[in-house]
Amino acid sequence: MTGPAFARLLRGALPALSLALLLGAIFYLQPRTMSYFGLNLLLNLAVPIALATVAQMLILTVNDLDLSIGSYVSLTACIAATWLRDTPLLGLLALGGGVLAYGALGALIHLRNLPSIVVTLGMSFVWLGLAILVLPTPGGKAPDIVRALMTWKPPYVPFPIIACVVIAALAHVALMRSPYGAVLRGAGGNPRAVARAGWSLLRVKVTMYMAAGFVGALAGIALVGLTTSADANIALRYTLLSIAGAILGGSEFVGGRVSPIGAVIGAITLTLAASFLSFLRLNPDFQIGAQGAILILVLALRALIGRAEKDR
């Protein structure tokens, strides 16, 4: 195998390698996590983060950035903990409305040629405001089915692992293997070419935004299933986590170069990074900083590999 080819392989494997390394370090520090129960605890919160990251990645595919995903996940979590439990029909309608609103945003951004950063920034206020209206004080209760699913203990393999594999596989098939998925990614890579080939860019944007809204809503529901109750600020940090996760997983900011499997792996890595730091008994003051350092480290590795890729 030649140098550049090896570098390319390494680049593709980098997200998985960093995850394996982190997992190894955690097992070494705290061998008790190497059990069904331990893994379950360790990876539980990765499921909603993975979903939010996939939602962010869908937006990244069409060269946009969603700065409102955190408050949107908070809103859907609040809806799930209140209306979806008490009046399921109203809850489903509200969640469907959220998905439609995302589609409308995509259309607005495309038609008026608006910067997604600013529109979603404005929407983050709207989602947060709606979340406060739905659930003024922390509380609510997760619907029983959701709670049952999220705490399900299947034999042999812990549920979070199954969930993450299913999420990654579905997103991979839909975006990387399906014919329309290629068009969607193409719209990020070369919008003009896709438009010339007769595809509607408007439809592409709306599809992607609605898909992101749908996956984001799933993230909110999954989160409530774990925490059993919700509050309006429950997932605000997901905005930054989802961007970092998608980038860690190998997605690029422009050009439609994304990786659904990588995104899920990136989300798990970030979740584990937090546990790893607490296993290190690191001063909590440094936890955020260390998360940033891990992010910088992985990106530095990728830059090194990228340089090797170019040396021919």
Binding site: I243, I247, F253, I288, I296, L299
Partner: peptide
């Protein structure tokens, strides 16, 4: 420059480190 990463991600990661320094 060194990592050849988009400024959004660079400043995002550095903000974690800076915030941590402030807390400390």
């Amino acid at each position: 420059r060194l990592l050849r990463i988009p400024p959004i991600i660079a400043t995002l990661s550095s903000s974690f480190v800076i915030q941590s320094a402030a807390i400390w």
